[in-house]
Design a protein around this nucleic acid. Structure first.
Lengths: 343, 343
DNA sequence: TTGTATGCGTTATCAT
DNA sequence: ATGATAACGCATACAA
């Protein structure tokens, strides 16, 4: 038998003002005298009053809420989320809170796109996509949102002529630096692990950086040293074994993400290759586990803190019809034990 | 210049029925003839109609939304969230989605409790706490929620006579098994790392399990082999060094969580102790990084999948005034390379 | 099974 | 600066 939740009318009565004045006073929004504002605030505190956000949202047609939709890679099983995404999630959550917005979080099934129509049902004012599933379905989603005038922003590859608004790491440059580092350390036969089909534009960019570094060093890439692999440790393991078994010179591997690199590390060990003695390995992301592998993984660090911040800030800009600001986030090569100078 | 969002009245007009019928038909809820339901659904699809959840929530006084409030350990810096919490987050998110509920996620600052009053402002129907900050503040929060009749459930230590509703791992039993495993492998001088003050009831339970295992083996615990440490790698590192420098016999360490265990692993290496040769180490949680340490970490696995599921399911039960079901989740000892039989 | 009428609690508009 | 009133879009009680 609890007391009824107080409404703004109850506050009005207690404070001796009109209900509309209560509403105004509580939002520091319109013209209210200091005096009545204090009266109202005191009454509100006294009755432990909280604004009903549903009523507010209904009337104001705003929710002060953002939705974070996570599109994992196709193959990923439920329990094996890429830890990088979790780091992003945490960063976005904090950034949204800093800007006074609530955050709805949802892991999207690859298939069902219609299930959670967050913005269309006025649950959220804007949408942040983490990943995008497959590209065609992404395009369709974007189109629907644009048509409905719903602001959205995506974490992913920043490519020219792309529909939608993207924030992403400088994948080409990050990969180029990593491979340049290998070359500077005397490595000459550098393999690449990662799916560079159009399903993974980010991996494709990292592959471009790889090629660029080779080119700038006057080396030519050996096509036999490139292997497709989805973003999972097992795949990296498999790919490393396959590379080692090719029978071609191989003294380094650049993996398109850390999970692949970690798998490659284990694959190398299975083939009796010492890392970094026989084989240098570099990954991409800098997930936490990269610090604990043996040897610790050299990797290209993505700045998840900046990523979350820029995603939220730019989405808020879009919601005010202001242009997007920065879109490409620099990476940083973190050198650890998994690569070493030779020669 | 977009078209106005259609309302249930627009659908009613197009389908040739009343608005209330539209509302009923769209929820498969009350009595509507198959015939009219199809008409309504077709009209809704045609106009791309989506229910306005704010209006629905306001009218029905329900939100179909749960709030997940994450209370990190006090010392934790922004970027260093305990990965175990992220795994839980992911699991809860999925469970909520399976049950058709949206999920609001928020990382709580230790201090400001008033900031996001999710349920009081009718943003969410129920609240899930991940951790609880310090215990006194937790008690205060719980009391306010109970007073307001807001359903809530907490991930944490399941203790007798505790206010609120808890779901948690069987910390005592998990720890007991781990230490029993060490003893069975011939270890006799087993250290414990972890803060067992009342700030960390879970660690305290794990310590109880540690003592229990020793007792059951007829061994007595050496108080000098217990060291306080917050849940962070550095702390584990520091604690391992301190233990090693005590000059007492030491052939194993049980750490209250994996981050501590990983730190201890590195500390042992710094002192020239081989793991698992000289020193066996076991952790608790089974975070992903535990798989990649050198040697891989033996640890007590918490079942995050079951945890998320039980948190959500039991919260939903509470929301229907049904009693809580299962509250204690069994753990499982995962044996990896960081411990070995001696003697 | 369907329609009618009312109200959820707030913000926005128009007065004063 | 404040008050009165309407409107947001839907769900529910009641009548038919």
């Amino acid at each position: 038998m609890r007391a009824k939740r107080p409404t703004s009318f109850d506050i009005a009565e207690l404070a001796g003002v009109s209900q509309s004045t209560v509403s105004r006073a509580l939002r520091h929004d319109s013209m209210v005298s200091e005096d009545t504002r204090l009266k109202v605030e005191r009454a509100a505190r006294q009755l432990n009053y909280k604004v009903d956000v549903n009523a507010r949202n209904l009337r104001s047609q705003k929710t002060n809420t953002l939705a974070l939709l996570i599109y994992e890679d196709p193959g990923t099983s439920d329990s094996l989320i890429n830890p990088f995404f979790l780091a992003m999630l945490s960063s976005v959550t904090r950034a949204a809170a800093r800007h006074g917005h609530d955050l709805l979080v949802s892991f999207q099934q690859q298939s069902g796109e219609g299930n959670a129509d967050y913005a269309a049902s006025k649950r959220a004012d804007g949408i942040i996509f983490l990943g995008y599933g497959d590209y065609p379905s992404y395009i369709a989603r974007i189109a629907r949102l644009d048509e409905a005038g719903i602001p959205h922003i995506t974490w992913g590859p920043v490519l020219p002529g792309q529909p939608g608004h993207f924030i992403g790491s400088d994948n080409v440059q990050g990969a180029r630096e990593a491979v340049a580092h290998l070359i500077a350390a005397g490595r000459r036969h550098i393999g690449f692990i990662g799916d560079i089909s159009e399903n993974c534009p980010e991996f494709r960019d990292r592959h471009r950086g790889y090629l660029l570094a080779l080119e700038q060093a006057g080396l030519t890439a050996d096509p036999a040293l490139r292997l497709d692999a989805e973003a999972a440790e097992q795949e990296g393991h498999r790919a490393a074994l396959a590379l080692a078994d090719r029978g071609r010179p191989l003294d380094a591997i650049f993996a398109a993400c850390d999970l692949l690199a970690i798998g490659a590390l284990h694959g190398a060990r299975d083939r009796g290759l010492s890392v970094p003695g026989d084989l240098s390995i570099i990954g991409f992301d800098d997930i936490q586990a990269a610090l604990y592998t043996n040897p610790p993984l050299t990797t290209v660090r993505q700045d998840t803190e900046a990523a979350g911040r820029l995603l939220v800030e730019n989405l808020l800009r879009l919601m005010e019809d202001r242009p997007i600001d920065q879109t490409i986030i620099p990476t940083r090569l973190v050198v650890r034990g998994s690569c070493r100078r030779v020669g």
